[in-house]
Every structure is written in C-alpha cells, then in structure tokens.
C-alpha cells in the first residue's frame, strides 16, 4: 500500500438558509504510511472540516461530495453507514482539540477506554482492563490502574489528552487524525504531547494528519505541509522547503506573523491585513487577493490553479513563478 490516505477532489457542502457553502472546495492530497502531514491555516480555512470529513463526522447539514476518500486502500465515500463505522477508530482514529470536553463526564476513563477496546480489539472483562492500562501507560500515564477508575473531571487537561490518545491507539490505527491536539494545553504539556505523538509514529509506523494553526508545531512535527486558505489548498511542500522558500503570499504572511524571540520590545508584529473571507461570499478570482500585498489584475479576475512551481512544491498563485521569496 502506497498511501494510507488518499483524498481526491474532495468537496464538503453545508446547506444553509442563505444557500450552499463549501468550507472545503476541491482539495486533493495523500498521506504515506508513517508520514506526518500538517494542515495549517487560520480559523475558517476549512482545515478542521477536512479532518472531520475523512471519517464523515461532520454531523447534520454537512455533505461530502463530489470527491473520493480512500483510507487504508478502501473507498470510504462508497461505504454504508455501518461499514464506515467499522473504519472509525480502526483504520483511522481521531484526537480532538478540547480535552476538557471530548471525554464523557459521567463515564469513567476505564468505561470509555474499554468501549474502544471492545470495538476494535475484541477484548472484554479482565483482558480489556489490562489492555486499557497498557494503553494508558503507553500514552505516558504512570498510575494507569488508578486512572481507569477515575472520571474525566479529576484529571488535568494534559492527562485527559493522553487518555484521548490512548483511546485513539486502542485499535492500532494506520492513521491518526489530530485536530489541534495541543491548542488547549499549556506549553510544557504541549511539548510532552507532541513528543508522545512522535514516539507513536516511530513505534507503530502510524501516519499522522495534524491540523494546526501553530507554525511552531508544524516545524516540530511535519514531514509535509498543506497550507489551506478559504477551503482550498494554496501551497503544498515538504517542511524544509516551506520554511526556507515559501512561495504563496499567504504562507509568507503567516511566517511573518510568528514572533521571534530575538524581536526587541518595540518590534511591531506583522499581520496579514483583513480576515478570512466568509465562505458564503468569496471574492472573485484568487480568494486571497483582497489581502494580498502583491495582487495584480489577473488575481482579481481569474482563480489560480494549484500547479508545481518546483518538484514536489505546489502553489496556487499566479505570481509564484515570477517573484521568488524575498
């Protein structure tokens, strides 16, 4: 199997009172076994919707299609609800942003872990309990037996995220989809959770699709990066090229908006002017042109396509070939 996950021309439509909107509009990418792919972008860029669409967890109103999602060699977009459910947690598992709200407050950690174990490892009773403790230890929780009997409210945010990760690896998935897994945690805990994810990747050869808006996390984790803007991929390349030679004006704007520790106290942080457009009212032409410092006439009238600017470096910008990164 060459790819764990292959997404081709995926579109997600939400029906609203003001017409249909497409928070994800015709995106394609693939993840290889053991690879970490990061999706970066501001809030509203469609990165979370993309992550939820893979296992069809969009909820009411969100429709997937057209487009194809292939997970572990199987076409998910053609599966029935029951078949799709079997893939959840088994072929791909998810880790969410808010560890405070992603665990059920009235069930013990053990209840919730054993449920995943029963579904994906087929273990029950004592065997399930032993495996649950083993998973917790693997996720870096020392007093596992004790934690199994506890309820989520008695654990810290970092501990809860470890529990969520333990739950996610119960079915030994080939792909972990992590939607902003460290955003709600403080920095030291963030570093621990990222280290844990890295270890899981090397130990089990698990591929990771990491959704984040934090370029620090990208630099730390990613093999390859997709930059999303207003529902589209605007740049895709490996992590080194992205940081050395970003081509899309949006990517460059994001890089400039990261404060450096060497910046003096009077340094004014550069920000991209404006905000992400409302997906119900997208601008004509390139979706980024109203905020782009280099926008030309062509950008206002015609949507650029995602084209290779260099080997394995895709960019959606008319000017990418002409103006190398400064």
């Amino acid at each position: 199997m060459k790819h764990v996950l292959e997404i081709e021309e995926l579109t997600v439509t939400f029906r609203t009172e003001n017409g249909d909107v497409r928070p994800v509009d015709d995106i394609s990418f693939a993840v290889r076994p053991g690879e970490t792919v990061c999706i970066v972008g501001e809030s509203g860029s469609g990165k979370s919707v993309t992550s939820l669409a893979i296992l069809n967890l969009l909820g009411k109103g969100g429709e997937i299609g057209p487009g194809r999602i292939r997970l572990a060699g199987e076409q998910l977009t053609e599966k029935s609800g029951a078949e799709l459910r079997k893939a959840r947690g088994k072929d791909a598992a998810m880790i969410f942003q808010e560890p405070m709200t992603t665990l059920n407050p009235v069930l013990t950690i053990g209840d919730q872990l054993r449920e995943a174990i029963r579904l994906h490892a087929g273990l029950r009773g004592k065997a399930a309990n032993a495996y649950a403790a083993e998973l917790l230890r693997e996720a870096g929780i020392a007093r596992a037996e004790q934690v199994l009997k506890q309820y989520p409210h008695s654990l810290s945010g970092g501990m809860r995220q470890r529990v969520v990760i333990a739950m996610a690896i119960a079915g030994k998935p080939k792909l972990l989809i992590a939607d902003e897994p460290t955003t709600a945690l403080d920095v030291t805990v963030q570093a621990q959770i990222l280290a844990l994810l890295k270890r899981l990747r090397t130990d089990h050869d698990t591929a990771i699709l990491l959704i984040t808006h934090d370029l620090g996390v990208v630099a730390e984790m990613a093999d390859r990066v997709l930059v999303m803007y207003a529902g589209q991929i605007v740049e895709e390349t490996d992590v080194f090229t992205l940081f050395d030679r970003p081509l899309h004006p949006y990517t460059r704007g994001l890089m400039k908006a990261v404060p450096a520790i060497s910046d003096g106290p009077d340094y004014r942080l550069e920000a991209i002017p404006g905000s992400v457009p409302d997906i119900g009212r997208l601008p004509q032409g390139c979706r980024f042109h109203p905020r782009c410092p280099a926008a030309a006439d062509r950008c206002r009238g015609e949507m650029p396509t995602l084209t290779p600017a260099a080997p394995a470096h895709l960019v959606r910008c008319w000017l990418a070939g002409q103006s190398p990164a400064s």
Binding site: L57, R85, F96, H120
Partner: peptide, 26 residues
C-alpha cells in the same frame, strides 16, 4: 451538541449507543 459524542462516534460506537448511553446519561 456536546463534543464527547463526536469522540464516541469517532471511536466507532453505534449511533444507538451514542444517544442512549453517552448522551442519555448526561
């Protein structure tokens, strides 16, 4: 509306158990 129901679905829990076990208890 709660996030933990999405977590339960992401684990592969049946919809009936999501509503009658995870949601109802809360």
């Amino acid at each position: 509306q709660q996030d933990y129901l999405r977590t339960a679905r992401a684990k592969g829990v049946r919809e009936f158990a999501v509503t009658h076990k995870h949601a109802l208890r809360n």
